[in-house]
Simulated scan of single mutants.
Amino acid sequence: MKNIVLIGMPGCGKSEIGKILAQKTEMEFIDVDDFIESSNKLTITQIFKNGEVSFRDIESIAVRELSKKKSVVISTGGGVIKMYENILSLKKNGLIIYINRPIQNIVEDIDVEGRPLLAKDPANVYRLFDERGPLYKKYCDHEVMNISSLDEIVDNILEIYAQTNNLNV
């Protein structure tokens, strides 16, 4: 069984959706940022103090390691798509789902604490969306809009996953 890999903007709902998916499928849930913090015994903000390039290198190592797992739900950090090697690793055994949430909805309720690229100026979310939006679309296997209830979004992803794995829903 392939992994379910969630990509998308910070604040799009990857972690919350991923946890529900994992529960419904009885798969392990892994948040890449949590994994990085645990492995490095530092917060993402602390790691970012060494620069974004340093963080992206650490993130790539984590993605490479996590991509080897089987039948897990992986919630990636919003910038995972910035390094193509991450996408190649994630696609080896994963179905990549882009959680696309309208940018205005993200801006209205995003918690910028713990998000180094947004903490100084939450308006950076628009810049990030312009930069990353095309990459999310380019690298995903399927795009799911986060504009309805979480249950509907999860059911939509489960249907896509079942079709990909030739399962009955």
Score class of each variant (00 low, 15 high):
Met1Pro: 11
Met1Trp: 10
Asn3Ser: 08
Ile4Phe: 04
Cys12Glu: 06
Glu16Pro: 00
Leu21Lys: 09
Leu21Val: 04
Leu21Ser: 12
Lys24Arg: 11
Glu26Trp: 10
Glu28Leu: 09
Glu28Val: 05
Ile30Ser: 04
Asp33Asn: 13
Glu37Ser: 11
Ser39Tyr: 14
Asn40Lys: 15
Leu42Cys: 13
Thr45Asp: 14
Gly51Ile: 08
Val53Ser: 14
Ser60Ala: 05
Ala62Phe: 01
Val63Leu: 10
Arg64Gly: 15
Ser67Asp: 01
Ser67Thr: 05
Gly79Tyr: 07
Ile81Gly: 01
Lys82Gly: 11
Asn86Lys: 06
Asn86Gln: 07
Ile87Ser: 02
Ile87Gly: 01
Lys91Ala: 02
Lys92Phe: 02
Lys92Asp: 06
Asn93Ala: 06
Asn93Ile: 03
Gly94Trp: 01
Gly94Gln: 06
Ile96Phe: 05
Ile97Ser: 06
Tyr98Ser: 10
Asn105Met: 07
Asn105Gly: 00
Glu108Gly: 03
Asp109Tyr: 03
Arg115Val: 03
Leu118Tyr: 12
Tyr126Phe: 15
Arg127His: 09
Phe129Lys: 13
Pro134His: 03
Tyr136Asn: 04
Lys138Pro: 04
Tyr139Cys: 14
Glu143Ala: 13
Glu143Gln: 13
Leu150Glu: 01
Ile153Trp: 04
Asn156Leu: 06
Asn156Gln: 12
Leu158Asp: 04
Asn165Asp: 12
